[in-house]
Amino acid sequence: MSIDFSHFDLSAAAFGEPVIELRGMSRAFGTQTVLRDISLEVQRGETLAVIGESGCGKSVMLKIMMKMLEPSRGDVDWFGKSLRQRAELDIHRDRLKFGYLFQSAALFDSMTVLENVAFGLRQNTQMSDAQITQIVHDRLKDVGLPMTAASKKPAELSGGMKKRVGLARALALNPEIVLYDEPTTGLDPIMTDIINELILRTRERQPVTSIVVTHEMSTVRKVADRVVMLYPLSRLQPDEPQIVFDGTAAEAFSTSDPRVSQFVHGQARERLQELAAA
């Protein structure tokens, strides 16, 4: 007797249990719905790239995953448990398993680089100053920053350095899950590649689950095990799902779905015609 495995999503089956799950999640701001009925599982150990046009809700989804925003409808699970049924303290404890690299790096501008990277350690551990300083130096070294950067203020850093400090800060507490919000936006191609390498290296050094919101297809090619594409609701019919693609990076680049292929290959086509008609 043979068993048919074709219905299994092999890309997901290669990884562990779901660490984050969105179930029928929607989010509106005032009267404008940005995310509608999103259901998505992120497996332990995988690197998921979330792509889509600007304004389609990628960053909002990332913030909902991190519980920095509440969904208007639906539910979010962390490690198999619904956030709605958890105590605040329990959520706080599990949030420390997350690292978040913000699009603008979001460094605290009144603090030095050292204080920024040390912030999570000072806030959540009882480590001595010497231990914290050692960890900060290790993390700065991991992201390729010299120790001389530790005493600088964020205003004295370049965009790429800020992103690397942001990454060092996100990794300081040894998170199990790292969320990257457009980690390479605004960087030159060399710095983009450096950040991509850092994402890969982070994963090699410790078994982390990564979710990368990006527009950069080189990032998708380089780091993603799985790609999910969100589509703007304004371009969808009410009954169409907002996730228009869920597969491997190779599949994303070879799919026949014009919405996905035009995006990943950077072809405007219908959009140019719409602009001309407008």
Partner: peptide, 12 residues
Amino acid sequence: TEQIDALKALGA
């Protein structure tokens, strides 16, 4: 500049 979100993300 998302620094308040960053505080939340860092457990504060």
